[in-house]
Amino acid sequence: MKRSLKTLGLSERAEHELVGILRMPESSVSPVTAIARRLVWAVLALFAAVLIVYLDRDGYRDVNEDGISFLDAVYYATVSLSTTGYGDITPASDSARLINILVITPLRILFLIVLVGTTLAVLTERSRQVVKIQRWRSKVRDHVVVVGYGTKGRSAVSAVLSDGIDPSRIVVVDTDQAMLDAASLLGLVTVHGSGTRSDVLRVAGVPRAKSVVVAANRDDSAVLITLTAREMAPKAQIVAAVRETENVHLVRQSGANQVVVSSETAGRLLGMATHTPTVVDMVEDLITPDAGLAISEREVEDSEVGGSPRHLPDIVLGIVRAGKLFRVDSSEADAIETGDRILYIRKVTPADD
């Protein structure tokens, strides 16, 4: 027995049923530009019809029987394309009638499409979205899913974009349509729904995602989202933000690789700012990827293997070995090994922006 549409999960629905929930980025065009384009097409269609009628004017009959002038051709094309059709000028010869069938009628349809463009644009947009969603769902791999597009989510997206990730490979999940509209303007793929629902996360492609950023407003939501995402994507890098330190272990047990305590981090910075404000400025500079200095990670070069990270020209903070970070002052970081990655401070140049 078939289930009704209401009982189907989002991930089981066809592409045309996801329009309005999953939204692919579109190039933004101002209303004035859109109207101007439609007017240009309407004028071109009208001009083509006028030219065709005037060149074949001997095949048309006027009730005044004084021949077809250029003004008569403009008049006939206008009333014909607008489907007014007074009948005072009619195609009389076989060639004129054939041209009306093969050329004028398609131009009339084009003209009406332009005039009724607002309604048809909605239908066209829906069709384009269906095609884009179908293509995206079949090809998306190793993308980044950001659950929650509040202050934390927007900052996370900015950092990911600064690393050179294409906006179309970032998926934002949120229940606030205004937030999703803002994300769409940046070229991001958006999914309207709650990240605590498994079917919403499936639509966002979490099972095939490379990284998942959990930026929920509530810690209990962060725990549930992390748990669901980890079940879907056992190998994905999951980073979650929580408000309270006491909830860190819950999020880690749910499967998060990294947990950021937003309130505690903000509190530390506030406290430091009371007596060492310049330190706070430096920290802000380091965690802002598009200005000044930035913390980055790179692969080691063959010539660096066996050497000490302290002797590198870069300001090295640590070594990442087998997914584990060793600070530069630890004994494990005395010598660089093959396969290590260097965590260092780099200067952001205009080319990086």
Score class of each variant (00 low, 15 high):
1 M>K: 13
351 A>F: 09
311 H>G: 11
150 G>V: 04
217 N>T: 02
139 K>E: 07
330 S>F: 03
138 S>Y: 06
70 F>Y: 06
195 G>L: 08
92 A>C: 08
108 R>S: 13
274 T>Y: 03
351 A>K: 15
6 K>W: 04
232 M>V: 06
211 S>F: 06
218 R>G: 05
319 I>N: 01
58 D>K: 15
326 F>Y: 14
318 G>P: 00
47 F>R: 11
272 M>W: 05
73 A>N: 04
66 D>Y: 02
251 V>I: 10
93 S>D: 01
312 L>E: 07
322 A>I: 00
93 S>P: 01
110 L>Q: 10
66 D>T: 10
31 P>N: 13
71 L>I: 03
285 D>V: 02
88 D>T: 09
206 V>N: 12
77 A>Q: 10
172 V>S: 11
34 A>H: 14
75 Y>P: 00
216 A>N: 04
44 L>D: 03
256 A>H: 02
309 P>M: 11
166 D>Y: 06
191 V>P: 05
209 A>E: 01
108 R>D: 00
228 T>K: 15
197 R>Y: 01
244 E>Y: 11
184 S>K: 08
311 H>V: 03
79 V>E: 11
50 V>L: 15
175 T>E: 15
102 L>F: 04
40 V>S: 08
220 D>P: 00
23 R>H: 04
139 K>L: 07
142 D>G: 14
327 R>Q: 06
124 T>D: 13
111 F>Y: 10
202 R>Q: 08
264 E>T: 13
144 V>S: 13
263 S>H: 06
339 G>S: 12
24 M>F: 10
159 A>F: 13
78 T>R: 15
303 S>C: 00
123 L>C: 07
4 S>K: 12
324 K>C: 02
241 A>C: 06
17 E>V: 07
29 V>D: 01
87 G>H: 10
215 A>M: 11
353 D>G: 00
49 A>Y: 04
160 V>W: 13
145 V>H: 09
37 R>A: 07
341 R>N: 06
234 P>D: 12
186 L>H: 07
179 M>E: 06
68 I>R: 12
235 K>C: 02
49 A>H: 04
32 V>D: 06
302 D>A: 10
64 N>T: 07
163 D>C: 07
24 M>V: 10
53 V>P: 04
263 S>F: 02
130 V>K: 12
171 V>W: 04
120 L>H: 01
39 L>Y: 03
45 A>Q: 07
313 P>R: 14
24 M>Q: 13
282 M>K: 13
91 P>R: 12
325 L>Y: 02
31 P>M: 12
36 A>W: 05
151 T>L: 13
278 T>H: 11
347 K>N: 09
319 I>S: 04
133 I>T: 06
329 D>Y: 01
175 T>R: 15
208 R>K: 14
24 M>L: 15
194 S>H: 09
75 Y>E: 01
72 D>S: 08
229 A>Y: 03
28 S>H: 12
288 T>P: 02
120 L>Q: 02
174 D>W: 00
206 V>Y: 09
239 V>N: 08
265 T>E: 04
81 L>F: 08
285 D>T: 10
310 R>E: 07
240 A>Q: 09
165 I>M: 12
101 I>V: 12
267 G>R: 13
264 E>N: 10
142 D>H: 15
43 V>W: 08
114 V>S: 14
51 L>I: 00
275 H>E: 05
271 G>I: 08
349 T>Y: 08
19 V>F: 05
280 V>L: 11
317 L>Q: 05
180 L>W: 07
324 K>N: 07
253 Q>T: 04
195 G>V: 00
